[in-house]
Amino acid sequence: MMAAEKKRIRKLTIAKAMSEAIDQAMTSNPDVFVMGEDVGKLGGVFGTTTGLFDKYGPDRVRDTPISETGFIGAAAGAAVMGMRPVVELMFIDFFGVCMDVIYNFAAKNSYFSGGRQAVPMVLMTSAGGGYSDGGQHSQCLYTTFAHLPGLKVVMPSNAYDAKGMMTAAINDDNPVIFIFHKSLQGMGWLGTAKGAIVDVPETVYEVPLGKANISREGSDITVVGFGNTVHHALDAARDLALEGISAEVVDLRSLAPLDRETVLASVRKTGRLLAVDDDHLSYGWTGEVIASVAEAGIALKCPARRIAYPDVPVPFARPMEQFLLPNAEKVKAAVLSLMNSVVSV
């Protein structure tokens, strides 16, 4: 008797999904190569280059000294000359030492050359805290890149998106800042949101950069998240459903380009808006999203609200850091208070 063919589920962590995307790109395109600190034999401190060194060797998977200024500059130069480098800045917190080549060269060269000299590089970098690693290893800071024209800035919230977005990033002729959140990565010492580990096809596929995703449909309120905060929103939405509140969760997936259309369509439907970010509050993307809704003239049933990391450095002490981070409880409390509030006329 033939057993019913069950669809085989193959779950991956974001770390493995990113590695698989880079692996497949390296197989099909000899111009793709990897550089960074500990990306070789170790496979990346965050597992982003697992297995690549053994498969492709030291010419295409290059361990670098601790010199982001040098090797990220080299990557940008290689990209201009026709290569497709994938380079890792281990922590986004360290961008200070390599920012000039990122925003004054990589982000501008296509414009300066009249479109003749693209810079098809992927800069992948870790963001986020929550595991007591101190103020120079726990920041998000991605909004800083999103403020600068000429860069794409993306972050997956799950392994399916991670693979498809990495493939799209490598194939993109623009410099792409590919953020991965440490709380979603699948590395044990950091803890991992379970919803980030999902079924991932073995085939090559792209998830388009700059398209938001409706992670959960709802009708009462739109909760917009990015990376880890998508999971806070989803956890809160599950709880809220038990109380009869239907929350729609939008995963931005990209800050630049920002998919305003998807956000606006959702808010037109729900009439309420909460934006949740774990980057610093002031001048962050939550403000940009709310401004976009205001500029579109959408009438809201209650004031828009944002939850984000307060404008203070990230503390080392665990209770202090946890107190400041967004979480599902804060999202739930904010939604409940918004559902009970109205716009004054």
């Binding site: 069950k6 085989r8 589920i9 193959r10 779950k11 991956l12 962590t13 699948g186 590395m187 044990g188 991992t192 580990i197």
Partner: peptide
């Protein structure tokens, strides 16, 4: 040690 992630669901083939 610690299991960092189950890559299958409980009850999966």
């Amino acid at each position: 040690a610690v299991i960092t992630a189950w890559l299958v669901d409980d009850g999966a083939e």
